[in-house]
Structure formats: C-alpha cells, structure tokens
Design a protein around this nucleic acid. Structure first.
Length: 552
RNA sequence: GCGCCUGUAGCUCAGUUGGAUAGAGCAACUGCCUUCUAAGCAGUGGGUCCCCGGUUCGACUCCGGGCAGGCGCACCA
C-alpha cells in the first residue's frame, strides 16, 4: 500500500476511538481534521468538545484525560497536546513523513491510486449535445467536468462507464434533415431557406458540401429521402463531436443513439405501455399525460401529443430505464443550465417507476461567460455568432482550457477570460503550477549533469528538518486524500485548489533552500523530496488532463 | 407567481462538509536575481462572509424568512 495516508488516518482514529471508549458513550464519530494554522500540528480533533455535553464535564479536562490515555506509536506521532477550548492536536513524527516520501518515490506514476471508492459503480452521462450543430462552451465545460470526475473515480478504485446520449430522433431530426436539404440546394446555387425553427449556421453548408463531395458520381445516394439525409447528417455531426472531444482529451465508452437503441428496438413504445399499465397516465385535451406531479414534480408532462406523436420525455424515460436496469450504484447526468427545469420531472418519473430517488443524480454545469480582456464576448445563437468549443480550444490550447473549466465549482457561473488563458504570464494560473513542475525537471537535469544521482534505495531523509520541508511533505502525503474527496463529492475543482497549494509550497521551499549546492546528504534528501513533488504534480495534472511540461 | 443556481477583499473565486485569528490569485504599493528557471519569493494595505432571525460549546457553513443577480418554468428537444 503506497497510500500511507489512509493507514495513518486509521491508526490515529483507532487510538482516539480507544481513548473515547473509556467513557462508554455510544455513537460518537471521531473526526480528524487538518488545522488551517500549521502551528497547531498536523491533525486535530474536536472530540472532547463533542463529549463535553454528554459527560457534563469541561472539554479541556476531557481532552487532558484522553491525551493521557492515548496509546500512540511513537514512530508515528511525536506529540499530542491539548489546546483551548478543547482540541487535541497531534503532531506526526518525522519518521512517518520519511516513510511516506519513500513510498511516493517507489510508487511513481501510481502514487495516488487507491481503493477507497471500490465498489462504486457509476454511469456518467455528459455533454449529450444535440447532433444538430457544433459543441459550445458549456458543452466543453461539461466535457471536462465529466472526464475529470471519471479519472478521479477510477484512480480511487471506483468503476465508471461514460456515455453520450445522441438525440437523433423525433422532431428535431426531421427539421435537421429539411435544413440540410435546403443547405444542399443553396450550395448548388438554388436559393432555399431552412424551415421555420431549422438550422442555419455556416456549418450546415459545410455539411452540405461534405455530402456532395461524398456522393459525387453516385447518383443513387443523391435521392435520399429527407429522413435518410437527416440521419446521414446527424451521424456526421456526431463524428465531428467525437473528433472535437478527442482533441480535448475526452472520450466516451458508449454513444447511445436514441433512434437506433430506443426507437428502432421498440423500447419507447414499451416504456409507454409500461407507464400506462402502471396507471401513471391519463388523457386530457386530446393528449396523454404522466402524473409526475404526484411524485414531486410541479406539473404533469405530456407523453403523447394530441397529434399522436410521443413527446421527447418518453424516450428520455425509456433511456433512463435502460440505464437503471444495468445495475449501477449511481446514475449521474451532467447537464447544462438550460435543462435544470427538467430535473424534477425526471426525478419524479424515476420515483413513479419505483426506483430509489437517490440512485439518480444530476450535476449542473453552470453558465460560462466568455470574456476577452474583461469584456464580455457577445454571442447570438440566432445569428450563428457563437464561440464553439473547437474555436476556444484553438485559441487557448488544451491545457489552459481544461484547467479553466475545472477551476471553479460546477454550479458556479464561470467567467472564462480568453485573453488571460492565452497569456504566458503570472496572470494565468495554469503556468504557476506547470512552472513548478518545469523547475523541478530542470533541477533533476542539472543534477544529472553534475553526476549527482539520487540513489533509488536506502535513502536517508533525516536531514530534512525545516518547517517548509515538512509543509511540503504534508502536502504530498495528503494527495490521495484530496483525490478521493474530489471524486467522492464530484467536485474536481478541489484538485485545482490542491495543485495551487502544492505549487506554492514548492516555490517557497525552492526559494528558501538550496538543493544542488547543499552538502551531499542534504542534497540527496532534498532531491528526493523534489522528485516526489514532481511525481505528485505530474499525477495531479494528469488527473485533470493537463500536461506537465519539462521546460518552459 | 413557482423552481434551480449564485451572493465572501477593488476583480475572479476557494473555504477540507459545524471548528481555533475567514484564505488564494489578479490588480495597487514595497523589498529580493554575480548563486539550481524572477512564469518565482517575502511584505503592506484591503472584509457588515447580502440582510434579519433560529439551532449550539461553536455558524461563511445547517434551518426559517427576506433582498439582489443569472437561468428555467411549451402538446420544443
């Protein structure tokens, strides 16, 4: 086990548990926290305060008693103190740190892998943009969020299947076919407008040209029905999406086609039948409705429109039914802010069908405002003037784009300043972290040039004694913990916070302590530490899909 | 009107799930390179954590009620 952090936590918790057991108070959970103020030690527990009320004793005296009763391995903990109003502060022994350091160097690229989320089986659906046009920046944000959550969960021993729902059926498919037909006509020089509510942008004509090139000299395909044309076009747009996402380092295990996997095999009709049989539907105004309001939604939804055509929600329910039946411990959907009105009805539908409500969870990737030099970039979907994911990627690059998208919590509105993301200065937070990595690489290169080869085995780290050093050691030691917490809470931005902290700790250490010029044993030890920091930076950046450059 | 999200330093945002003196980056100002990358470090100034109540040893965090901004509330998907 390379992640000694977890066993350290366990030993500390166990020891505290034993000390608490003396009081015979049931149902007390031991909380262990890292105090913000480092002078308070490495770990603190407020357990005595929680006990105070039940025991009717002063928290301070409880804490003092507990410390006396604590049996702790001295090679693990060097000190336990009591602080007002009743905290117990624990200080790790240097030896414990050195052991972790050794472990990191041995584990290398594997450091951070753990089993904490073993047994978790997620289905993560994200992006799922309509195959009627290019991906936008919110799609990009969702893509990065989903992909990062996937990486974090997998490295923590959880299982994740990623899925992209392709909405290639129904009304919008028809409209798309007609729009493409019109675009082809225009490309051939015959003016023709897209239908009402159809798709207009320049990309439609690109698509038309692609179609013409592909079917040149093949008269048969020229006479595709509008429906078939729409299918061809949507498949092609899906292809575009795959490619764009690929450039972003995001891939999906399964592209789930609404038409091929739900409509054609009859699952939509089957779902409708099931809902009816369960008595969840009724007729009104010539339409068929589902009683979602009885299950927590604000209103009922139309299942079958009065023209006899099923509404989109039927396919949606069919899809989710399909997902739920596959035995996941959690089915998660990352959606854009424009769909959050939909959440309650979907939750209600789940409940109506008898599934545990908590099985299904929705994460919202909130709105992204694109700025350029502090000014809002004006976009208008109607005029086809909007920045696509691909354009953004072209302008700022994969590293900056990915970093910016996970920098903030998913449900915070995000200000994305293109100009800042392009800058190669200290205004750009990506560089701060990458620079720390590049500095270490440069060090390691220099050290090789000087013939200093930090030996792989039998290291002696006892010369690592300075406060800045222990700060760094603590930070890299906690890496797996941050990974797990980020994964567990579906909050990948915590990894960004961690990286900023780690980079700052390293930069501080670097300016305060010479490495190569230090006496040989010290140099060896510090190089080992630097190498460990480099490993963690690379692994953490890797989890975000950002590169760790060797020089800048 | 109803629902979701947000409200923390001049700006953009964290805040380890209820803990100790509320933090970071940027912007402003001041220092630090004949020495391993100054894309860095140190320091200074900057706060009614939107407001009012409640819960308790303790609240930025949880609950209730307001206020403000964003988004959503179709027989569209």
């Amino acid at each position: 086990m390379t992640n000694e952090i977890f066993s350290i936590h366990q030993s500390l918790t166990d020891a505290l548990q034993r000390a608490v057991a003396v009081y015979g108070v049931p149902e007390i959970t031991i909380t262990l926290e890292s105090p913000k103020d480092k002078t308070h030690g490495d770990y603190a527990t407020p357990i005595a305060m929680a006990l105070a009320k039940k025991l009717k004793k002063a928290p301070l005296s409880i804490a003092q008693d507990m410390v006396k009763n604590l049996s702790l391995d001295p090679s693990l903990v060097s000190g336990a103190e009591v602080a007002a109003p009743g905290f117990i502060n624990l200080r790790l022994a240097p030896k414990a740190y050195y052991g972790v350091l050794e472990g990191i160097l041995t584990a290398g690229a594997q450091y951070g892998e753990n089993k904490q989320l073993q047994g978790r089986r997620l289905l993560l659906e994200f992006v799922s943009a309509n195959p009627t046009g290019p991906l936008n920046v919110v799609n990009a944000r969702a893509a990065v969020l989903g992909d990062t959550i996937t990486r974090l969960t997998r490295v923590s021993g959880g299982q994740v299947d990623t899925e992209y729902y392709v909405n290639d059926a129904g009304n919008q498919a028809r409209l798309f076919g007609e729009s493409l037909e019109a675009a082809i006509s225009r490309v051939r020089g015959v003016p023709k407008d897209a239908p009402e509510g159809g798709y207009q942008g320049a990309y439609m004509e690109d698509l038309a040209r692609e179609f013409l090139t592909e079917t040149e000299g093949n008269s048969k395909d020229f006479n595709l029905s509008t429906a078939k044309l729409g299918e061809w076009g949507m498949d092609r747009v899906v292809q575009w999406h795959k490619e764009s996402l690929g450039k972003f380092g995001v891939s999906f295990e399964r592209w789930f086609s609404e038409r091929r996997e739900l409509h054609e095999p009859g699952l939509v009709a089957e779902t409708l039948k099931k809902l009816t049989e369960m008595g969840l539907t009724y007729d009104k105004d010539g339409a068929t409705w589902i009683k979602t309001s009885e299950f927590g939604a604000h209103k009922d939804e139309v299942l079958i429109k009065s023209n006899g055509i099923p509404a989109y929600i039927v396919a949606d329910i069919a899809y989710h039914l399909h997902k739920l039946k596959r035995g996941y411990s959690k089915v998660i959907n990352i959606m854009g802010p424009d769909h959050h009105g939909h959440i309650l009805s979907m939750k209600a539908a789940h409940k109506a069908l008898g599934f545990e409500e908590s099985l299904f969870e929705v994460l919202i990737a909130q709105h992204v405002s694109l700025l350029s030099g502090g000014q809002k970039v004006k976009m208008s979907k109607r005029e086809g003037k909007f920045v696509t994911m691909e354009e953004l990627l072209g302008q700022v690059g994969k590293d900056a784009a990915r970093y910016f998208f996970v920098m903030r919590g998913a449900n915070s509105h995000l200000d994305f300043d293109i100009e800042v993301a392009q800058k190669q200065t200290d205004e750009n937070p990506v560089f701060y972290v990458q620079y720390a990595h590049a500095r270490i690489c440069s060090l390691l290169k220099k050290c090789a040039e000087r013939g200093l080869h930090p030996s792989r085995h039998a290291r002696d780290f006892t010369s690592l004694q300075e406060p800045e050093t222990f700060l760094l050691l603590k930070e890299i030691m906690e890496f797996p913990q941050w990974v797990v917490e980020s994964a567990k809470s579906y909050e990948p931005h915590r990894m960004v916070v961690y990286l900023q902290n780690l980079a700052a700790d390293f930069h501080l250490f670097y300016t305060k302590h010479r490495i190569l010029d230090a006496p040989s044993e010290v140099a060896q030890a510090r190089l080992g530490l630097a190498q460990a920091v480099r490993i963690v930076l690379e692994n953490a950046l890797g989890l975000l899909g950002v590169t760790a450059p060797e020089q800048m």
